[in-house]
Simulated scan of single mutants.
Amino acid sequence: MENLLRPIYQERASQPNTLGVLVYEKLHHNSPVTDSFDVILLIVVREAEEDWYVKHYEYEDKTAAMHIVREDLLGQWIETSGYRKVIDWLINGKIVFDRNEYLSHLREKLREFPEITRQLRKCVEFAKLIRTYRECKDLFAAKHYLDANSLMVRSLHYLARVAVLEKGLHPEVTVWNQVKRFDPEVYKLYEELMESEEPPEKRIQLMLLASDFAIHSRAERGAEHLLNIMREKNEPWSFGELKVHPETQYYTLDLSILLEYLVERRIVETKAVETKGQNIYHRQYLVKD
């Protein structure tokens, strides 16, 4: 199989812009990791007109997908789990070209999974968890039970990813297989939601209560990345300052609801600062001691 693909990637490997090439072959008949393609050909480049270019091939009775990804976009995917499949490709794929050991060093970094990267990933997933959980509660209160059920499933997926990250691992596409091994309590929540014979209203009500505890117990660990940023100075932060901080950019869209949750849990406190308007104050935030 690799011999058939070699002319394709050798052409790319000869270009000075190419940093590395790896081949990933699917392990199962219907593989979500490869979108059911037989082979993934990942080519990392330093610069390109398109930050992500994809081309599909077929040969004999096989199919292949070639992904040409710019280095900066790949880094973004890794830091935020923006395209989770690529982690599996990088860790388990076969490196067939490696300029200055670029892919080897990247693979080693992924396996080490530095604490700062893990904190960022947890905060991204935890912020999404808070948003979907709140939206689920709102839909439940409005008696939209089927829509609330869909959001409950999604929020449990975010909870599962947080649980896996807490163990120092990268969440895989098959995240529930990981959770079953490393966090049986979170897996039990998902199992109960999927297998419950209760009517939707009762099922979601019970899951909201159980999920609330699971989320609350992880609040400080989940938001650790944001809390550490806020501890960089002894003075309160305005929301605008936090929003433009370069290290919060990966969860900016969920930053407001995450802050409100931390305020409600009394992990973060607010300070009212006078404005020119009478009885109107700026709201600022600081980590509670």
Score class of each variant (00 low, 15 high):
residue 2 E to I: 14
residue 4 L to Q: 12
residue 4 L to T: 14
residue 6 R to Q: 15
residue 10 Q to P: 03
residue 14 S to G: 10
residue 18 T to E: 11
residue 22 L to G: 04
residue 28 H to F: 10
residue 28 H to C: 10
residue 29 H to P: 05
residue 30 N to C: 10
residue 32 P to S: 06
residue 34 T to A: 10
residue 35 D to N: 13
residue 38 D to L: 08
residue 41 L to Y: 01
residue 43 I to G: 08
residue 44 V to M: 04
residue 44 V to A: 10
residue 44 V to F: 03
residue 53 Y to D: 12
residue 57 Y to R: 06
residue 59 Y to T: 10
residue 61 D to H: 11
residue 64 A to F: 06
residue 67 H to N: 13
residue 69 V to I: 15
residue 69 V to E: 01
residue 71 E to R: 15
residue 73 L to S: 04
residue 74 L to F: 11
residue 75 G to D: 06
residue 79 E to W: 06
residue 80 T to L: 00
residue 81 S to E: 15
residue 83 Y to P: 00
residue 85 K to Y: 05
residue 86 V to N: 02
residue 86 V to Q: 02
residue 91 I to K: 09
residue 91 I to H: 03
residue 94 K to I: 08
residue 95 I to F: 07
residue 99 R to H: 12
residue 99 R to N: 13
residue 103 L to Q: 02
residue 104 S to M: 08
residue 104 S to A: 13
residue 105 H to C: 08
residue 113 F to G: 00
residue 115 E to K: 13
residue 116 I to W: 09
residue 119 Q to R: 15
residue 122 K to N: 04
residue 125 E to W: 02
residue 131 R to L: 14
residue 135 E to V: 13
residue 142 A to G: 06
residue 144 H to A: 11
residue 145 Y to A: 08
residue 152 M to I: 08
residue 156 L to Q: 03
residue 156 L to W: 02
residue 163 A to V: 09
residue 163 A to C: 10
residue 164 V to G: 01
residue 164 V to E: 01
residue 165 L to T: 01
residue 170 H to P: 00
residue 170 H to F: 09
residue 178 Q to Y: 00
residue 179 V to P: 03
residue 181 R to Q: 13
residue 181 R to D: 11
residue 187 Y to V: 07
residue 188 K to P: 03
residue 191 E to V: 09
residue 191 E to T: 15
residue 193 L to I: 06
residue 203 R to F: 07
residue 205 Q to V: 02
residue 208 L to S: 03
residue 209 L to N: 13
residue 211 S to C: 10
residue 212 D to I: 04
residue 214 A to T: 07
residue 215 I to N: 00
residue 217 S to P: 05
residue 218 R to I: 05
residue 218 R to A: 08
residue 220 E to Y: 04
residue 225 H to N: 05
residue 227 L to N: 09
residue 230 M to E: 06
residue 234 N to Q: 12
residue 236 P to W: 08
residue 239 F to M: 05
residue 252 T to G: 04
residue 253 L to S: 12
residue 254 D to L: 04
residue 254 D to H: 10
residue 256 S to F: 12
residue 259 L to R: 04
residue 265 R to D: 09
residue 267 I to E: 10
residue 270 T to S: 06
residue 271 K to W: 07
residue 278 Q to F: 12
residue 280 I to A: 08
